[in-house]
Design a binder for these strands. Structure first.
Length: 501
RNA sequence: GGUCGGUUGGCCGAGCGGUUAGGCAGAGGUCUGCAAAACCUCGUACAGCGGUUCAAAUCCGCUACCGACCUCCA
């Protein structure tokens, strides 16, 4: 097993990855708050971690991947402003029970994850299903002196926490002195909080509030951040390997999460923090609240103002994989057009490769060495902080080789049977198992595949006869008509192949 | 204002001290009945100005611009 290096947001450096327990990985990723449909930016983060999950498993790690569903407690504004939480607001607007809202958008989220071919996590805990654990954590925090109760709400005392240790602010790069010095003026406006940076861990519910639970401090609901602390602890322990999420969660969400975990059990939760960067649209962060977002369905249907045509889910996935997860990625029509072609080229090469059978004499040469090197490098790229962009560039160099084998430009004599089999297996593994792509390029809908293939074999056969007798009128007519049906015929030295565009 | 991060050829996007990233587009060629595909060759890019170094897109400093977070957001 090779050594994986991970960029740790906590240290700002790339570090060798050593799991707490050999061969096992505990990974927690912040999931969605299910109060609205997922937008494309959300999908990028989860796709990034899906590839990480897949790669760790491919390398033989036993991974417990926990990704939560937040269905309570996530406020729209600050507590003191009397803001309602997202679930309650959505419930009122749609005139549904909060749990109906949660159900609706959880199902939608799962469906979208499936469309993007993201594997489900090992455990997907919900905030509402872990109220007792969260109450317990609030008690622990109070017991340790890092919380205080005011009028039925409980706040986390960031100042005391920051004074007692040097943990707070480390992840997000906040300077504690600034925090402490922060605006004495602001303090005057605080009704309940002792300091602006303090945050609610338990929030008192008014009688009309739709989601509320009994607690030692009266009826209320848990604060945002708390569910992740409680659930990661429950399923992965007080200390685990990897914690991930979108870059925009670094502060305050993740910073506060660390504070809560430390405050409750004196242990910083994750050893490696990973942050996926934002998807950009028009050069700015995709954000629904800012009105700068595209919904996945709009992209798949082409029904939007940003793009010239519809793009399939796998084209989008491929597009995302062409950039490193830590970089921002700019979405544009030109970029997607390019990704679409690249994706097809990759898939067609894969089909060609699987269609080849070894007929060489097995003389290892420079060619043989190059192929092995490229495969090794692709894995090394993934080991180096999951660099899918770089790994893909190796695969495309292999696409060249594969096409050359197919057309006979390079003889299979130049590689050994072992290398040939390795290429066949690992090229496929990489595309499907590690990068999690699906081949959308072949066949029609499911179930029709055999019929379509059979028909196409027939058509191609008829055309081949026409070509043999130099009946160009017929052969060109077949090709043109198929073209109108968005089927492209490609004539090669060993017969013709077809694809649906 | 504070804290980070970025600025790479026509577009997207890797690289993070010395060796061709890659995809798309473009040019020329090979193959082919033609076309498409495929294959071969080619563009010689690193915001600007200084500095360190035998050597910088890569390190340091300054300037300009862009973005993220500091309010809810993956």
């Amino acid at each position: 097993m090779s050594t994986i290096h991970i960029h740790n947001s906590l240290s700002g450096k790339k570090e060798a990855f050593t799991p707490l327990k050999e061969g096992k990985v505990g990974m927690y990723v912040c999931g969605p708050t299910v109060y609205q449909d997922v937008h494309l930016g959300n999908c990028r983060t989860f796709t990034s971690f899906d590839v990480i999950y897949r790669y760790l498993m491919y390398q033989g790690f036993k991974v417990r991947y926990v990704r939560n569903i937040t269905d309570a407690g996530h406020l729209v504004g600050d507590v003191d402003t009397g803001a309602e939480d997202k679930m309650t607001k959505a419930a009122r607007l749609e005139m549904l029970e909060p749990m109906e809202i949660a159900q609706k958008y959880t199902l939608g989220f799962h469906k979208m994850m499936d469309v993007f071919n993201n594997l489900p996590p090992s455990i997907e805990p919900r905030a509402t299903g872990h109220i007792t654990e969260q109450i317990r954590m609030v008690k622990d925090i109070l017991h340790n002196g890092y919380g205080y109760e005011v009028n039925g709400s409980v706040y986390f005392n960031t100042i005391k926490f920051a004074q007692d240790n040097d943990v707070y602010g480390k992840l997000s790069g906040k300077i504690i002195d600034d925090l402490l010095a922060e605006s004495r003026d602001d303090l005057k406006n605080q009704d309940e909080k002792r300091h602006p940076s303090d945050f609610a861990i338990w929030i008192k519910a008014e009688p009309k509030h739709l989601q509320q639970w009994e607690s030692p401090w009266g009826p209320g609901f848990p604060g945002w951040h708390l569910e992740c602390s409680a659930m990661s602890t429950k399923y992965l322990g007080t200390e685990f390997d990897i914690h991930g999420g979108g870059n925009d969660l670094k502060f305050p969400h993740h910073e506060n999460e660390i504070a809560q975990n430390c405050g409750a059990c004196g242990q910083s939760p994750a050893r490696y923090w990973m942050h996926a960067n934002m998807l950009l649209l028009n050069g700015k962060k995709m954000s629904k609240s800012a009105g700068n977002s595209v919904m996945p369905e709009e992209l798949f249907s082409g029904n939007n103002d940003f793009f010239s045509k519809a793009y399939s889910p796998m084209v989008i996935r491929f597009f995302m994989l062409q950039a490193h997860y830590k970089s921002t990625l700019d979405l544009s029509d030109d970029a997607l057009l390019a990704a679409e072609k690249g994706y097809h080229r990759l898939m067609e090469a894969h089909q060609s490769l699987q269609g080849l059978s070894y007929s060489g004499q097995g003389n290892a040469s420079k060619e043989d060495e190059e192929i092995n090197t490229l495969l090794n490098q692709a894995f090394a790229d993934m080991d180096d902080d999951f660099n899918t962009a770089k790994a893909l560039s190796r695969l495309f160099t292999l696409v060249n080789k594969i096409n050359s084998f197919k057309s006979g430009h390079i003889s299979l004599d130049t590689i050994t049977e072992t290398t040939f089999n390795r290429l066949k297996k690992e090229f496929s593994d990489f595309i499907f198992n590690i990068l999690g792509l699906l081949d959308e390029t072949q066949g029609g809908g499911s179930g029709n595949g055999e019929v379509v293939n059979g028909l196409m074999d027939l058509v191609i056969n008829i055309r081949q006869h026409a070509r043999s007798s130099k009946d160009w009128t017929t052969s060109d007519q077949i090709r043109d008509k198929l073209n109108e049906l968005s089927i492209t015929i490609k004539d090669g030295s060993e017969g013709s192949t077809w694809k649906i565009d």
